[in-house]
Design a protein around this nucleic acid. Structure first.
Lengths: 153, 153
DNA sequence: GCTTTACTTGACTATTTTACTTGGTTATTA
DNA sequence: TAATAACCAAGTAAAATAGTCAAGTAAAGC
């Protein structure tokens, strides 16, 4: 599991897609404009997302991309791993390098941690992310209203 | 929060330090050899770790590095953020770019997620990582013993 | 106090990844 | 058949990563 700006771009783009595609496909030009990501870079990212069955495409005029599954079934981990190709070069995989055991221990510790991070991000779906944000927005709007009513009363 | 091989190197090195420094300082050459990380790269990483009060150094012969706090008070997030400088270029910070609100929404969603990842990694300490691994080792040893005793009885 | 050891610092370089560009081709619809 | 938008491939600039080198400085021990 790697977490770089590339992953952020991908998650942001999928979030944009989830927010804008009500049955109608969304084309990359629109996402490019809204999220300020270059069109061709988006094409590369979406090519990987499509190959990983996260989105599906419709060609031709009026075409674009759609989520391939319900929002709640698309995890952040899935998106990030899709664009990162995740060839996770885990050094001592069986042979070599791990001569004295101690090195293998630290390596194992890292693998454990890596698994835990992956598991964590696998439990956060696009749908959940959006809902949580909506709740927060409602809450802050409410407290804003409260604040106003307090100051005006 | 960014999670790259650089962060892995740093966490691995601190784990190695935690495992090997029983009151005595550990020098970077030893870590370099054990973890197969170049000495000069370790120097750069430890310079940042020291500035962030994660480790302390002792100069001169017999010198090296020690953890600056108990194992349980050093979080994985702390280590990763220390070496990554975390200048997290969060695009629309107030001004610019965020014209239509929608873009800001996706941006906020990412920031939320980022905070959650950070919080998650902040709750995993070096000490906890090591202990968990020990438990696993004991368990697998136990189940191995069980398996053997079953097959031999 | 001098020498040795070993950390410290900074500048410099190679490699890899990221982000983007260009220039196309192919499928679909109006 | 003209316009649209996905698809594809090669190349490129900039940034991050990983490592090198050389000149320091602090501490230990003789």
């Amino acid at each position: 599991m790697r977490l770089t700006t590339k992953g952020r771009y991908a998650v942001t783009a999928v979030l944009d897609l989830a927010l804008h595609s009500q049955e109608k496909p969304v084309n990359l030009s629109d996402i490019s404009e809204r999220q300020a990501i270059s069109l061709s870079y988006l094409e590369q990212l979406f090519s990987k997302l499509r190959k990983n069955n996260i989105v599906k495409s419709i060609r031709g005029p009026g075409g674009g991309y759609l989520l391939n599954s319900p929002k709640d079934e698309i995890s952040v981990a899935h998106i990030i791993n899709a664009v990162n190709e995740s060839i996770e070069l885990s050094r001592c995989d069986g042979r070599a390098n791990c001569h004295d055991g101690k090195q293998c221990l630290t390596h194992n510790l890292w693998v454990d941690l890596s698994l835990r991070i992956n598991e964590f991000l696998d439990n956060i779906s696009i749908g959940e992310l959006i809902r949580q944000n909506e709740r927060q927005a409602v809450q802050s709007a409410r407290s804003m209203v409260d604040a106003i009513s307090v100051t005006t009363v």
